[in-house]
């Protein structure tokens, strides 16, 4: 279980940079996420969704408030809160197998054991046969599968995904969404998924958190009442369309609330 309570974060401009104001990325954010719940974070640029994700990961520090995962306060990064990166972050000099086994290698798992585990995951994400390939030989979608496999390999309690399909083309993105749903059904985990795409946010999530910018706050939380397992077909259901319409309304009202601020510039 993830407990985010009264979390705030302000970014200060670097010393010597004239003319930039401190930015309040997050202001008193509260959120509780249950075990094995799939939560998506959406919102306009600057709403702090990535910052919040990085805080749960332990990569960015909390100014005020507390983040607890399974009762323990987050103080730094840990494989228990594994992350999948938008730019894949694969080691270009290592094979798919070695990339997937990386977390295990760091942990000191003996070579045979970790290669076995890695092979199993490579198969699960649909990359069987590519164990010896280098990342440069793979397509974007395949590389992200490696990223997902790597994250799953360390058996984390939380999976953090930072716009993982953002760098992929539309076709591949849609395919990867279905892949993710399939994989998640096999290995249920708590997931926090940051995205720009409302469709994606609704399709994948149990709950969808809409954030507002300047300062970053939680604006709305929509519970998605679509049954699991999900599929592409759900996109045309009434529930989906209504939820999407509601979220668009919220987004638009956020946009309009922003306008007066911008006119003055």
């Amino acid at each position: 279980m993830i407990d985010i309570s009264h979390v705030s974060k302000t970014f200060h401009p670097r010393a010597g940079r004239r003319g930039t104001q401190p930015v309040t990325a997050l202001d008193d954010v509260n959120l509780t996420i249950g075990d094995n719940e799939f939560v998506t974070l959406i919102g306009p640029s600057g709403c702090g969704k990535t910052t919040l994700l990085r805080m749960v990961a332990g990569l960015t520090s909390v100014d005020e408030g507390l983040i607890r995962v399974d009762g323990k306060v987050v103080r730094g990064p840990s494989p228990d809160r594994a992350m999948v990166f938008q730019a894949f972050a694969l080691m270009p000099w290592a094979s798919v197998l070695r990339n997937v086994a990386f977390g295990l290698e760091l942990r000191g798992t003996p070579k045979r054991e970790r290669e076995e585990l890695a092979r199993d995951l490579v198969r699960k994400v649909g990359l069987a046969g590519f164990e010896k390939s280098l990342p440069a030989e793979l397509s974007g979608g395949m590389r992200q599968r490696v990223g997902i496999a790597r994250a799953l390999a360390v058996n984390p309690s939380v999976l953090l995904m930072d716009e993982p399909f953002g760098a992929l083309d539309e076709q591949t993105k849609r395919m990867m969404q279905e892949e993710l749903l399939r994989i998640w059904e096999m290995e249920r985990k708590t997931v926090i998924f940051v995205t720009h795409s409302i469709d994606e946010a609704i399709l994948l999530a149990d709950r969808c958190v809409l954030m507002s910018a300047r300062p970053g706050r939680i604006h709305e939380i929509e519970t998605i009442h679509l049954p699991r397992p999900r599929s592409r077909a759900d996109e045309t259901s009434a529930e989906f369309i209504e939820t999407k319409a509601r979220l668009w309304d919220h987004l638009r009202s956020l946009q309009l609330a922003e306008e007066p601020k911008r006119v003055g510039v």
Binding site: A57, L59, G76, P77, S78, R81, F85, A89, G103, V154
Partner: peptide
């Protein structure tokens, strides 16, 4: 690449 180093930290390096 800073992100590569961050990734390593996440995975326990």
């Amino acid at each position: 690449d800073r992100e590569l180093v961050e990734m390593a930290s996440v995975f326990g390096a």
